[in-house]
Design a protein around this nucleic acid. Structure first.
Lengths: 209, 209
DNA sequence: ACCTGAACACCGTTCAAGT
DNA sequence: ACCTGAACACCGTTCAAGT
Protein backbone atom coordinates (compact mmCIF):
# COMPACT_ATOMS: atom_id res chain seq x y z
CA UNK A 1 0.00 0.00 0.00
CA UNK A 2 1.64 3.16 -1.19
CA UNK A 3 1.81 6.16 1.10
CA UNK A 4 -0.45 8.97 0.04
CA UNK A 5 1.41 11.72 -1.63
CA UNK A 6 0.69 15.41 -1.62
CA UNK A 7 -2.00 17.26 0.22
CA UNK A 8 -5.16 15.47 1.22
CA UNK A 9 -8.37 16.93 -0.19
CA UNK A 10 -9.95 19.62 1.95
CA UNK A 11 -13.33 19.24 0.30
CA UNK A 12 -15.42 16.58 -1.34
CA UNK A 13 -17.56 16.85 -4.44
CA UNK A 14 -20.48 16.09 -2.20
CA UNK A 15 -19.80 19.07 0.03
CA UNK A 16 -19.66 21.32 -2.99
CA UNK A 17 -22.95 20.04 -4.37
CA UNK A 18 -24.58 20.39 -0.96
CA UNK A 19 -23.41 23.96 -0.63
CA UNK A 20 -24.76 24.76 -4.10
CA UNK A 21 -28.11 23.20 -3.23
CA UNK A 22 -28.22 25.19 -0.03
CA UNK A 23 -27.77 28.40 -1.99
CA UNK A 24 -30.23 27.29 -4.67
CA UNK A 25 -33.02 27.23 -2.12
CA UNK A 26 -33.16 30.99 -2.07
CA UNK A 27 -31.55 31.98 -5.35
CA UNK A 28 -31.70 30.73 -8.92
CA UNK A 29 -29.03 28.20 -9.68
CA UNK A 30 -27.84 30.28 -12.61
CA UNK A 31 -27.13 33.24 -10.42
CA UNK A 32 -24.94 31.37 -7.98
CA UNK A 33 -21.41 32.54 -8.64
CA UNK A 34 -18.28 30.53 -8.04
CA UNK A 35 -17.31 33.26 -5.64
CA UNK A 36 -20.51 33.05 -3.61
CA UNK A 37 -20.25 29.28 -3.58
CA UNK A 38 -16.70 29.56 -2.27
CA UNK A 39 -18.00 31.93 0.38
CA UNK A 40 -20.64 29.39 1.43
CA UNK A 41 -17.93 26.75 1.69
CA UNK A 42 -15.47 29.02 3.44
CA UNK A 43 -12.70 28.40 0.93
CA UNK A 44 -10.96 30.54 -1.67
CA UNK A 45 -12.61 30.54 -5.06
CA UNK A 46 -9.91 28.61 -6.82
CA UNK A 47 -10.12 25.68 -4.45
CA UNK A 48 -13.40 24.69 -6.07
CA UNK A 49 -11.62 24.22 -9.36
CA UNK A 50 -9.70 21.34 -7.86
CA UNK A 51 -12.94 19.39 -7.83
CA UNK A 52 -15.03 20.79 -10.65
CA UNK A 53 -13.66 21.75 -14.07
CA UNK A 54 -16.06 24.65 -14.58
CA UNK A 55 -19.42 26.10 -13.73
CA UNK A 56 -21.34 24.10 -16.29
CA UNK A 57 -20.03 20.85 -14.84
CA UNK A 58 -21.14 22.08 -11.44
CA UNK A 59 -24.65 22.63 -12.78
CA UNK A 60 -24.76 19.11 -14.16
CA UNK A 61 -23.54 17.73 -10.86
CA UNK A 62 -26.21 19.60 -8.94
CA UNK A 63 -28.99 18.60 -11.31
CA UNK A 64 -27.88 14.98 -11.23
CA UNK A 65 -27.87 14.96 -7.46
CA UNK A 66 -31.44 16.17 -7.42
CA UNK A 67 -32.65 13.79 -10.11
CA UNK A 68 -31.00 10.86 -8.37
CA UNK A 69 -33.81 10.86 -5.81
CA UNK A 70 -36.50 10.53 -8.44
CA UNK A 71 -37.64 6.93 -8.62
CA UNK A 72 -39.09 5.15 -11.60
CA UNK A 73 -42.18 3.35 -10.28
CA UNK A 74 -42.24 -0.40 -10.78
CA UNK A 75 -45.09 -2.13 -12.62
CA UNK A 76 -46.48 -3.23 -9.28
CA UNK A 77 -47.13 0.35 -8.28
CA UNK A 78 -50.19 0.88 -10.40
CA UNK A 79 -51.49 1.28 -13.91
CA UNK A 80 -49.16 2.86 -16.45
CA UNK A 81 -51.00 6.14 -16.11
CA UNK A 82 -50.63 6.13 -12.36
CA UNK A 83 -46.96 5.35 -12.68
CA UNK A 84 -46.38 8.13 -15.18
CA UNK A 85 -48.16 10.59 -12.96
CA UNK A 86 -46.22 9.40 -9.96
CA UNK A 87 -42.92 9.89 -11.75
CA UNK A 88 -43.98 13.31 -12.98
CA UNK A 89 -45.05 14.39 -9.50
CA UNK A 90 -41.86 13.09 -8.00
CA UNK A 91 -39.64 14.86 -10.53
CA UNK A 92 -41.45 18.13 -10.19
CA UNK A 93 -41.37 18.14 -6.42
CA UNK A 94 -37.68 17.24 -6.42
CA UNK A 95 -36.91 20.17 -8.68
CA UNK A 96 -39.34 22.56 -7.04
CA UNK A 97 -37.23 23.00 -3.92
CA UNK A 98 -34.43 24.48 -5.95
CA UNK A 99 -34.88 27.39 -8.26
CA UNK A 100 -33.83 27.43 -11.83
CA UNK A 101 -33.04 23.75 -11.93
CA UNK A 102 -34.21 22.31 -15.19
CA UNK A 103 -34.34 18.94 -16.87
CA UNK A 104 -33.16 20.90 -19.80
CA UNK A 105 -29.59 20.72 -20.90
CA UNK A 106 -28.80 18.26 -18.12
CA UNK A 107 -26.57 15.79 -19.82
CA UNK A 108 -26.23 12.98 -17.40
CA UNK A 109 -26.92 9.36 -16.75
CA UNK A 110 -29.72 10.52 -14.48
CA UNK A 111 -31.79 12.15 -17.18
CA UNK A 112 -31.14 9.12 -19.38
CA UNK A 113 -32.35 6.84 -16.60
CA UNK A 114 -35.58 8.78 -16.21
CA UNK A 115 -36.14 8.96 -19.95
CA UNK A 116 -35.72 5.20 -20.15
CA UNK A 117 -38.08 4.80 -17.24
CA UNK A 118 -40.79 6.73 -18.98
CA UNK A 119 -40.22 4.83 -22.20
CA UNK A 120 -40.51 1.49 -20.44
CA UNK A 121 -43.75 2.53 -18.77
CA UNK A 122 -45.12 3.54 -22.17
CA UNK A 123 -43.97 0.23 -23.64
CA UNK A 124 -45.73 -1.68 -20.89
CA UNK A 125 -48.87 0.30 -21.74
CA UNK A 126 -48.80 -1.24 -25.18
CA UNK A 127 -47.40 1.66 -27.15
CA UNK A 128 -45.09 0.73 -30.01
CA UNK A 129 -41.63 2.18 -29.72
CA UNK A 130 -42.49 4.84 -32.29
CA UNK A 131 -45.62 5.80 -30.41
CA UNK A 132 -43.74 5.79 -27.15
CA UNK A 133 -41.15 8.16 -28.58
CA UNK A 134 -43.81 10.54 -29.74
CA UNK A 135 -45.65 10.37 -26.45
CA UNK A 136 -42.42 10.89 -24.57
CA UNK A 137 -41.51 13.97 -26.58
CA UNK A 138 -44.92 15.47 -25.89
CA UNK A 139 -44.91 14.75 -22.16
CA UNK A 140 -41.37 15.92 -21.81
CA UNK A 141 -42.18 19.18 -23.53
CA UNK A 142 -45.05 19.71 -21.14
CA UNK A 143 -42.88 18.95 -18.13
CA UNK A 144 -40.16 21.35 -19.24
CA UNK A 145 -42.86 23.99 -19.51
CA UNK A 146 -44.16 23.16 -16.06
CA UNK A 147 -40.77 23.60 -14.50
CA UNK A 148 -40.38 26.94 -16.23
CA UNK A 149 -43.77 28.02 -15.01
CA UNK A 150 -42.85 26.92 -11.49
CA UNK A 151 -39.87 29.25 -11.59
CA UNK A 152 -42.06 32.05 -12.88
CA UNK A 153 -44.49 31.56 -10.03
CA UNK A 154 -41.71 31.46 -7.46
CA UNK A 155 -40.52 34.79 -8.78
CA UNK A 156 -44.01 36.17 -9.08
CA UNK A 157 -43.74 37.43 -12.60
CA UNK A 158 -44.72 36.58 -16.13
CA UNK A 159 -47.85 35.61 -17.99
CA UNK A 160 -47.86 31.95 -16.96
CA UNK A 161 -47.83 32.90 -13.29
CA UNK A 162 -50.71 35.25 -14.01
CA UNK A 163 -52.68 32.52 -15.74
CA UNK A 164 -52.18 30.05 -12.92
CA UNK A 165 -53.04 32.65 -10.32
CA UNK A 166 -56.17 33.49 -12.24
CA UNK A 167 -57.25 29.85 -12.32
CA UNK A 168 -56.51 29.52 -8.62
CA UNK A 169 -58.78 32.41 -7.80
CA UNK A 170 -61.63 31.33 -10.00
CA UNK A 171 -61.59 27.62 -9.26
CA UNK A 172 -60.10 27.30 -5.80
CA UNK A 173 -57.59 24.88 -7.25
CA UNK A 174 -54.07 24.90 -5.93
CA UNK A 175 -51.23 25.31 -8.47
CA UNK A 176 -50.45 21.64 -7.89
CA UNK A 177 -53.95 20.63 -8.82
CA UNK A 178 -53.80 22.77 -11.93
CA UNK A 179 -50.63 20.98 -13.00
CA UNK A 180 -52.16 17.62 -12.33
CA UNK A 181 -55.09 18.61 -14.46
CA UNK A 182 -52.78 19.64 -17.28
CA UNK A 183 -50.77 16.45 -17.14
CA UNK A 184 -53.94 14.39 -17.09
CA UNK A 185 -55.15 16.25 -20.16
CA UNK A 186 -51.89 15.55 -21.97
CA UNK A 187 -52.09 11.85 -21.16
CA UNK A 188 -55.72 11.79 -22.21
CA UNK A 189 -54.83 13.38 -25.52
CA UNK A 190 -52.01 10.94 -26.10
CA UNK A 191 -54.25 8.01 -25.36
CA UNK A 192 -56.83 9.30 -27.83
CA UNK A 193 -54.28 9.61 -30.62
CA UNK A 194 -51.91 6.76 -29.93
CA UNK A 195 -51.69 3.44 -28.24
CA UNK A 196 -53.49 0.13 -28.13
CA UNK A 197 -56.89 1.57 -27.37
CA UNK A 198 -57.16 3.33 -30.66
CA UNK A 199 -56.28 0.14 -32.50
CA UNK A 200 -58.12 -2.18 -30.21
CA UNK A 201 -59.49 -5.38 -31.65
CA UNK A 202 -60.77 -8.19 -29.43
CA UNK A 203 -58.04 -10.62 -30.40
CA UNK A 204 -55.11 -8.40 -29.59
CA UNK A 205 -56.36 -7.59 -26.13
CA UNK A 206 -53.89 -8.62 -23.52
CA UNK A 207 -55.57 -10.34 -20.68
CA UNK A 208 -54.59 -10.97 -17.13
CA UNK A 209 -54.34 -14.45 -15.70
CA UNK B 1 -43.61 75.96 -31.03
CA UNK B 2 -40.49 76.10 -28.95
CA UNK B 3 -37.12 75.53 -30.55
CA UNK B 4 -35.64 72.15 -29.78
CA UNK B 5 -33.07 72.32 -27.07
CA UNK B 6 -30.01 70.19 -26.58
CA UNK B 7 -28.61 67.49 -28.80
CA UNK B 8 -30.83 65.64 -31.19
CA UNK B 9 -31.00 61.87 -30.66
CA UNK B 10 -28.40 59.88 -32.53
CA UNK B 11 -30.33 56.66 -32.25
CA UNK B 12 -33.91 55.47 -32.05
CA UNK B 13 -35.38 52.75 -29.90
CA UNK B 14 -36.20 50.96 -33.10
CA UNK B 15 -32.59 50.90 -34.23
CA UNK B 16 -31.56 49.44 -30.90
CA UNK B 17 -34.19 46.71 -31.05
CA UNK B 18 -33.22 45.91 -34.63
CA UNK B 19 -29.58 45.59 -33.73
CA UNK B 20 -30.45 43.28 -30.84
CA UNK B 21 -32.58 41.11 -33.11
CA UNK B 22 -29.78 40.98 -35.62
CA UNK B 23 -27.45 39.65 -32.95
CA UNK B 24 -30.09 37.29 -31.58
CA UNK B 25 -30.15 35.41 -34.87
CA UNK B 26 -26.84 33.81 -34.09
CA UNK B 27 -26.56 34.10 -30.34
CA UNK B 28 -28.92 33.62 -27.42
CA UNK B 29 -30.60 36.84 -26.41
CA UNK B 30 -29.36 36.40 -22.85
CA UNK B 31 -25.78 36.37 -23.93
CA UNK B 32 -25.93 39.63 -25.85
CA UNK B 33 -24.03 42.15 -23.79
CA UNK B 34 -24.64 45.87 -23.73
CA UNK B 35 -21.10 46.19 -24.97
CA UNK B 36 -21.59 43.90 -27.95
CA UNK B 37 -24.87 45.63 -28.76
CA UNK B 38 -23.07 48.98 -28.69
CA UNK B 39 -20.49 47.47 -31.00
CA UNK B 40 -23.21 46.39 -33.43
CA UNK B 41 -24.62 49.90 -33.35
CA UNK B 42 -21.26 51.58 -33.62
CA UNK B 43 -21.77 53.73 -30.54
CA UNK B 44 -20.21 53.82 -27.09
CA UNK B 45 -21.88 51.58 -24.54
CA UNK B 46 -23.34 54.35 -22.46
CA UNK B 47 -25.20 55.86 -25.37
CA UNK B 48 -27.67 52.97 -25.22
CA UNK B 49 -28.62 53.98 -21.72
CA UNK B 50 -30.09 57.18 -23.11
CA UNK B 51 -32.81 55.08 -24.68
CA UNK B 52 -33.17 52.02 -22.49
CA UNK B 53 -33.03 52.08 -18.68
CA UNK B 54 -31.37 48.66 -18.35
CA UNK B 55 -30.85 45.29 -19.94
CA UNK B 56 -34.09 43.80 -18.71
CA UNK B 57 -36.07 46.57 -20.33
CA UNK B 58 -34.18 45.89 -23.53
CA UNK B 59 -35.23 42.23 -23.37
CA UNK B 60 -38.86 43.21 -22.94
CA UNK B 61 -38.59 45.60 -25.87
CA UNK B 62 -37.11 42.92 -28.09
CA UNK B 63 -39.67 40.30 -27.09
CA UNK B 64 -42.52 42.73 -27.61
CA UNK B 65 -41.26 43.63 -31.06
CA UNK B 66 -41.27 39.96 -32.02
CA UNK B 67 -44.68 39.22 -30.52
CA UNK B 68 -46.18 42.24 -32.22
CA UNK B 69 -46.19 40.33 -35.49
CA UNK B 70 -48.21 37.46 -34.07
CA UNK B 71 -51.82 37.84 -35.11
CA UNK B 72 -54.86 36.57 -33.28
CA UNK B 73 -56.98 34.84 -35.93
CA UNK B 74 -60.50 36.16 -36.34
CA UNK B 75 -63.53 33.88 -36.01
CA UNK B 76 -63.83 33.85 -39.81
CA UNK B 77 -60.52 32.07 -40.09
CA UNK B 78 -61.71 28.65 -39.08
CA UNK B 79 -62.92 26.54 -36.21
CA UNK B 80 -61.66 27.41 -32.76
CA UNK B 81 -59.18 24.56 -32.93
CA UNK B 82 -57.83 25.74 -36.25
CA UNK B 83 -57.49 29.25 -34.90
CA UNK B 84 -55.66 28.09 -31.78
CA UNK B 85 -53.29 26.03 -33.84
CA UNK B 86 -52.74 28.92 -36.21
CA UNK B 87 -51.87 31.25 -33.35
CA UNK B 88 -49.57 28.68 -31.82
CA UNK B 89 -47.78 28.07 -35.11
CA UNK B 90 -47.45 31.78 -35.70
CA UNK B 91 -46.03 32.48 -32.25
CA UNK B 92 -43.57 29.66 -32.42
CA UNK B 93 -42.26 30.57 -35.83
CA UNK B 94 -41.93 34.21 -34.80
CA UNK B 95 -39.83 33.23 -31.81
CA UNK B 96 -37.91 30.50 -33.58
CA UNK B 97 -35.81 32.91 -35.62
CA UNK B 98 -34.33 34.35 -32.48
CA UNK B 99 -32.64 32.26 -29.86
CA UNK B 100 -33.50 32.37 -26.23
CA UNK B 101 -36.53 34.51 -26.72
CA UNK B 102 -39.28 33.31 -24.47
CA UNK B 103 -42.87 34.15 -23.74
CA UNK B 104 -41.75 33.74 -20.21
CA UNK B 105 -41.16 36.73 -18.07
CA UNK B 106 -42.17 39.03 -20.89
CA UNK B 107 -44.23 41.62 -19.15
CA UNK B 108 -45.83 43.58 -21.88
CA UNK B 109 -49.05 44.55 -23.52
CA UNK B 110 -48.13 42.13 -26.29
CA UNK B 111 -48.25 39.01 -24.15
CA UNK B 112 -51.47 40.29 -22.61
CA UNK B 113 -52.95 40.76 -26.06
CA UNK B 114 -52.09 37.22 -27.07
CA UNK B 115 -53.36 35.78 -23.80
CA UNK B 116 -56.64 37.59 -24.33
CA UNK B 117 -56.76 36.33 -27.88
CA UNK B 118 -56.46 32.74 -26.76
CA UNK B 119 -59.06 33.26 -24.05
CA UNK B 120 -61.53 34.73 -26.52
CA UNK B 121 -61.04 31.82 -28.89
CA UNK B 122 -61.71 29.43 -26.02
CA UNK B 123 -64.78 31.42 -25.05
CA UNK B 124 -66.12 31.22 -28.59
CA UNK B 125 -65.62 27.46 -28.39
CA UNK B 126 -68.13 27.35 -25.56
CA UNK B 127 -65.77 27.00 -22.63
CA UNK B 128 -66.84 28.77 -19.49
CA UNK B 129 -64.37 31.35 -18.26
CA UNK B 130 -63.15 28.95 -15.59
CA UNK B 131 -62.61 26.21 -18.13
CA UNK B 132 -60.96 28.64 -20.49
CA UNK B 133 -58.52 29.69 -17.77
CA UNK B 134 -57.62 26.10 -17.07
CA UNK B 135 -57.23 25.28 -20.73
CA UNK B 136 -55.14 28.38 -21.26
CA UNK B 137 -52.80 27.52 -18.40
CA UNK B 138 -52.29 24.04 -19.84
CA UNK B 139 -51.67 25.18 -23.39
CA UNK B 140 -49.42 27.96 -22.27
CA UNK B 141 -47.34 25.55 -20.24
CA UNK B 142 -46.96 23.33 -23.26
CA UNK B 143 -45.95 26.24 -25.46
CA UNK B 144 -43.34 27.45 -22.99
CA UNK B 145 -41.93 23.95 -23.03
CA UNK B 146 -41.90 23.90 -26.81
CA UNK B 147 -39.93 27.10 -27.00
CA UNK B 148 -37.42 25.72 -24.53
CA UNK B 149 -37.12 22.56 -26.54
CA UNK B 150 -36.63 24.62 -29.70
CA UNK B 151 -33.66 26.32 -28.07
CA UNK B 152 -32.28 22.97 -27.00
CA UNK B 153 -32.52 21.66 -30.53
CA UNK B 154 -30.89 24.75 -31.97
CA UNK B 155 -28.00 24.20 -29.61
CA UNK B 156 -27.95 20.47 -30.20
CA UNK B 157 -27.94 19.42 -26.59
CA UNK B 158 -30.19 18.08 -23.89
CA UNK B 159 -32.65 15.25 -23.47
CA UNK B 160 -35.54 16.93 -25.25
CA UNK B 161 -33.48 17.41 -28.37
CA UNK B 162 -32.52 13.75 -28.14
CA UNK B 163 -36.14 12.68 -27.85
CA UNK B 164 -37.22 14.75 -30.82
CA UNK B 165 -34.32 13.54 -32.88
CA UNK B 166 -35.20 9.99 -31.99
CA UNK B 167 -38.78 10.47 -33.10
CA UNK B 168 -37.60 12.09 -36.32
CA UNK B 169 -35.46 9.11 -37.17
CA UNK B 170 -38.06 6.50 -36.35
CA UNK B 171 -41.09 8.17 -37.85
CA UNK B 172 -39.75 10.42 -40.61
CA UNK B 173 -41.61 13.28 -38.99
CA UNK B 174 -40.04 16.72 -39.01
CA UNK B 175 -39.66 18.49 -35.66
CA UNK B 176 -42.48 20.79 -36.74
CA UNK B 177 -44.78 17.85 -37.30
CA UNK B 178 -43.86 16.44 -33.92
CA UNK B 179 -44.83 19.72 -32.30
CA UNK B 180 -48.08 19.84 -34.18
CA UNK B 181 -48.83 16.35 -33.00
CA UNK B 182 -48.14 17.35 -29.40
CA UNK B 183 -50.28 20.44 -29.58
CA UNK B 184 -53.09 18.45 -31.14
CA UNK B 185 -52.84 15.94 -28.34
CA UNK B 186 -53.06 18.71 -25.75
CA UNK B 187 -56.15 20.18 -27.38
CA UNK B 188 -57.66 16.72 -27.67
CA UNK B 189 -57.09 16.13 -23.97
CA UNK B 190 -58.57 19.48 -23.05
CA UNK B 191 -61.65 18.79 -25.13
CA UNK B 192 -62.08 15.44 -23.45
CA UNK B 193 -61.96 16.94 -19.98
CA UNK B 194 -63.52 20.33 -20.46
CA UNK B 195 -65.89 22.22 -22.65
CA UNK B 196 -69.38 21.92 -24.01
CA UNK B 197 -69.00 18.45 -25.43
CA UNK B 198 -68.36 16.75 -22.13
CA UNK B 199 -71.46 18.34 -20.67
CA UNK B 200 -73.78 17.77 -23.58
CA UNK B 201 -74.28 14.09 -23.02
CA UNK B 202 -75.51 13.74 -19.45
CA UNK B 203 -76.49 10.13 -19.97
CA UNK B 204 -72.88 9.02 -19.69
CA UNK B 205 -72.59 10.72 -16.36
CA UNK B 206 -73.44 8.58 -13.42
CA UNK B 207 -74.64 10.58 -10.56
CA UNK B 208 -74.54 9.04 -7.14
CA UNK B 209 -75.79 10.22 -3.90
C1' DA C 1 -1.95 16.13 -5.44
C1' DC C 2 -3.94 19.60 -3.93
C1' DC C 3 -3.95 24.72 -2.74
C1' DT C 4 -4.49 29.59 -3.89
C1' DG C 5 -3.20 34.71 -4.89
C1' DA C 6 -2.80 37.46 -8.85
C1' DA C 7 -4.18 38.52 -13.14
C1' DC C 8 -7.00 38.52 -17.40
C1' DA C 9 -10.85 39.34 -20.04
C1' DC C 10 -15.05 40.08 -19.45
C1' DC C 11 -19.92 41.93 -17.35
C1' DG C 12 -24.01 45.89 -16.15
C1' DT C 13 -24.47 50.18 -14.39
C1' DT C 14 -23.47 54.87 -11.85
C1' DC C 15 -21.66 59.13 -12.03
C1' DA C 16 -20.05 63.32 -13.48
C1' DA C 17 -18.39 66.18 -16.86
C1' DG C 18 -19.16 67.34 -21.56
C1' DT C 19 -22.07 69.67 -25.75
C1' DA D 1 -31.44 66.70 -23.89
C1' DC D 2 -28.49 63.90 -25.15
C1' DC D 3 -23.54 62.14 -25.10
C1' DT D 4 -19.77 59.44 -23.10
C1' DG D 5 -15.16 58.33 -20.58
C1' DA D 6 -13.93 56.69 -16.21
C1' DA D 7 -14.87 54.06 -12.51
C1' DC D 8 -17.17 50.58 -9.56
C1' DA D 9 -18.53 46.22 -8.25
C1' DC D 10 -19.00 42.33 -10.05
C1' DC D 11 -18.15 37.75 -13.18
C1' DG D 12 -15.51 32.81 -14.76
C1' DT D 13 -11.26 31.10 -15.53
C1' DT D 14 -5.94 30.68 -16.45
C1' DC D 15 -1.64 30.56 -14.71
C1' DA D 16 2.12 29.98 -11.89
C1' DA D 17 4.04 29.57 -7.61
C1' DG D 18 3.23 27.31 -3.28
C1' DT D 19 2.97 22.87 0.09
Amino acid sequence: MPAKRGRPPSLTEEQIVEAALRLARSVRLESISMRSLAGELGVPVMTIYNYVPNKEALHDLVASAVLRDVRVPTPEEGTWEERLKQLERDARSALADFRGLSLDRVDSTESARLAEGVMSILASAGFTSTEASLAFATMFTFMIGQIDVDVEIAEKGGPAAAAVQNVSQVTDMTPDEIYEFGFDAVIEGLKARLGPRSRRTPTTRTRRR
